[in-house]
C-alpha cells in the first residue's frame, strides 16, 4: 500500500548549519524565533476549529507572538498538524513539510496526529497512526480535541525548546481550574 512505502521513503531531514554560528548571536536569534512563530493555516479536522479559536479574541494567541497564520508553507515555520492524517493525505503533509524553510517545527495537535487517536482500531485501513511516522514532531499536545489552553501550553513548550527557557508561569497543578484563564 502507498502509505507504507511512504514511511519507508521518509525523507532525511537535512538542515544546513546556520550561517551565523556565534553563541550569543544564536541565542538572540533563537529568542526572536521563539517569540514570533508563524504557524501555517493547516487544519485537517476537528482540532483545526480549536486552532482557529486560539487565534480569536478570547484565547488570543497573539499574546504569545504566534498569531500570524500563513496559508503558504513557504512563509511559515511552525506546522500545527491539527487533525487526522489519512493515508491519502500523507503525501501532501510530507510535501508541505518539505516546502517549509528551515528552521521549522512541528506540533502534533490532538490524539489523531499523535497516534491515530479514536480512529485507530484493528481493521483500520485509512489513517496514519501518528504523524511522526511521516515527519519529525517537536511537541505533542494530547486531547480530543485539546482545549485551547492545551494548544497554548504546547506553544510554550515549543518556545522553551527553541529558546531554552520558559517565559510564562506554569499552570497551577492543584486547581481548581477556572474557565477562560
Amino acid at each position: 500500500m502507498a502509505a507504507q512505502n511512504l514511511v519507508a521513503q521518509k525523507p532525511d531531514v537535512i538542515v544546513a548549519d546556520p550561517l551565523l554560528n556565534i553563541g550569543p548571536a544564536k541565542q538572540i536569534m533563537d529568542l526572536c524565533r521563539s517569540m514570533s512563530l508563524w504557524p501555517m493555516t493547516f487544519g485537517l479536522a476537528c482540532c483545526a476549529i480549536e486552532m482557529m479559536a486560539v487565534g480569536m479574541a478570547r484565547w488570543d494567541i497573539a499574546r504569545f507572538g504566534a498569531e500570524v497564520f500563513r496559508p503558504s508553507p513557504r512563509q511559515s515555520d511552525l506546522m500545527i498538524v491539527a487533525g487526522t492524517v489519512t493515508k491519502k493525505m500523507a503525501p501532501a503533509v510530507v510535501r508541505l513539510y518539505e516546502q517549509m524553510p528551515a528552521p521549522r517545527w512541528v506540533m502534533a495537535l490532538g490524539n489523531c496526529a499523535i497516534s491515530g487517536g479514536p480512529f485507530k482500531f484493528k481493521d483500520q485501513y485509512g489513517i496514519m497512526e501518528g504523524v511522526d511516522h511521516l515527519i519529525p514532531v517537536d511537541v505533542y499536545v494530547p486531547g480530543c480535541p485539546p482545549r485551547p489552553e492545551g494548544l497554548l501550553e504546547g506553544l510554550f513548550l515549543l518556545q522553551e525548546k527553541i529558546a531554552g527557557k520558559r517565559f510564562w508561569p506554569n499552570a497551577p497543578l492543584d486547581g481548581p481550574f477556572e474557565e477562560g484563564k
Binding site: M1, A2, K87, K88, Y125
Partner: peptide, 11 residues
C-alpha cells in the same frame, strides 16, 4: 473516498 492506490480493498 479511497486512495486510488488501495481502491480494491472494499472495506
Amino acid at each position: 473516498l479511497m486512495d486510488p492506490d488501495m481502491a480494491d480493498c472494499f472495506p
